[in-house]
Design a protein around this nucleic acid. Sequence first.
DNA 1: CTGAAAGCGCTTACAG
DNA 2: CTGAAAGCGCTTACAG
Lengths: 346, 346
Amino acid sequence: MKKITINSVASYAGVSKKTVSRVLNNEPNVSDATREKVLKAFKELDYTPNPIARGLARNRSFIIGCLYDNPSKSYITRLQSGALAACHEHGFNLLIHPCELRAEALLENIEQLLQTSRLDGLVLTPPFSDHAELVAFLRKKGVPFARVASVKLDDDSISVRSNDEQGAFEITELLINMGHKDIAFIKGHPDHSATEQRFNGYRRALKQHGIEYQERLVEEGNFSYHSGADSARTILHLNPRPTAVFASNDYMAAAALKLATQMNLKVPDDISIAGFDNAPIARHIWPGLTTIAQPVEEMTRLAVDHLIEQINHATDEQQEGEQRQPLQLTLEAELITRESTAAPKA
Amino acid sequence: MKKITINSVASYAGVSKKTVSRVLNNEPNVSDATREKVLKAFKELDYTPNPIARGLARNRSFIIGCLYDNPSKSYITRLQSGALAACHEHGFNLLIHPCELRAEALLENIEQLLQTSRLDGLVLTPPFSDHAELVAFLRKKGVPFARVASVKLDDDSISVRSNDEQGAFEITELLINMGHKDIAFIKGHPDHSATEQRFNGYRRALKQHGIEYQERLVEEGNFSYHSGADSARTILHLNPRPTAVFASNDYMAAAALKLATQMNLKVPDDISIAGFDNAPIARHIWPGLTTIAQPVEEMTRLAVDHLIEQINHATDEQQEGEQRQPLQLTLEAELITRESTAAPKA
DNA sequence: CTGAAAGCGCTTACAG
DNA sequence: CTGAAAGCGCTTACAG
């Protein structure tokens, strides 16, 4: 059982291997008859082009790297799933690269990754998508990249985000409309742009409804369950105690819920609790968490899809002189109401 | 800024590129002086070999594929993390490949994956590690593979598992020693070998302590949260109601806990609940779940480590005629006691 | 519309 | 211990 290469196909179809290469790459300037012959040879020989050989000739790896550093496993798998979908659609592969944002040698680490794996592009997920230094570094090196769930940094990079500010606004407004006035807030990790956005949405809702902002009701978390537990401990012992807690993600909200239960507070009767992200835990606990669902897979899929198109058209564009618009999209988030929120007891 | 290749290094060091290649691959038959010269050139030129060119010449991709189909995101990321660790140690990359076990075209899907991505090997995680047909297929095709968390299928494949039977035994025994006699059991997915093993451990503990096995206390689940909720509904409405529930994983246990709480049953006072896996949810809910922790990262790391060594030594072995032992390991699981289990109320 | 030549950056097999 | 030649399976210029 010999290996089937472009040469096998060429001799089988009775053409040169350059012609085979042309139909492989959907290039023009091949007569329909010739194309048919070659296509038939592909089928009959069960030929699959060798991406490694193609990569060497074109100086490409057909691999996209995905950077992440996130405490939420479900978030990570959703990112991966969206990125994979886009990669497969274009015949690319995905290399996952978990790494620590705060590591000393982050840039060196990334540089080595690029050097050794010869990635064609990088998809940056939070908090890397907001890492200005990293973005500048990649731009300087000429490495194509796309940013997921980030703030606007500039005008010419691919970026897909969801409307965190609006989501936080809506969940806060929901609580206000239920009759809450003392609504505590647990912030996320300061390195994530989502943290500020969600905080802004919270404040905008308060303001719009004429409720005074109270600094004593705001705690700093970092998106981890543990940080949520710490923040909740402070909040739940406040006097007077707020009637609602809005945590910047579901893990921190779950921690607040667990603590409330341990303190014999009924949720939502004694205290309402809301989260953000619609992680699996939001529906796995009782009461289920009111939260905000973001289209994480779709965001990542779109970002990687455009990244690969940019990579693929890099050469064409030079010729055609036609600069394509970089994608900058904001998708909407969705409010999900569950049992953890209700009107405060009179 | 020209590209640095093996030729740049060769001319810089004043040797042939074959010699550079030799030091690159740690081959013998290079004088220390020459080796030093070349190593120095590597440093000064900041040279990194191109894995794509090397791959083409050696007919290798230096990529391991990881197959999985699992409802637990934390389990998936732990698998990935262990596999990545082993890959990086050997200069390999990891390709993640989520796919559905029950898909019609599974074997075709895998074959295409192998064809298009030219993987050097495959790591099979549950339930693929127990898929006899897939294992036979890979063996026939001569694709190196390793199996994680599987049963013994044969004598010559790499396989690393944990002692599920013993873990289930210990958790059941814990409940028995607390005074429970009516202990319900929720089974896992029938395609996972762990399902049978955990069930066996449960039965062995009952038997060893002279407690009669009651079929009415056993429900079929499939490891998903949803299936746990369904099974728990039946179990918690049993009359007489068992005093403890042991679910084959933490998601199903969490579902049972949620339902019990909704039914106003106190856990563990009215009913004890135990899970398996020590997933994050086990400590994120209240009361925390008594469960079994498995060394998933370590299992996967070991499996992939040996897989790559097998791949790397495939050629050497032929020459040396020295057949190395395939790795077949069983690691121990650890009982973790939390608040969800206690003696039954008198 | 088609093809012969050279090359991508490495390694293998052979010679010395 | 070292190197010149050929090759891995593709693509990029260039010619016709």
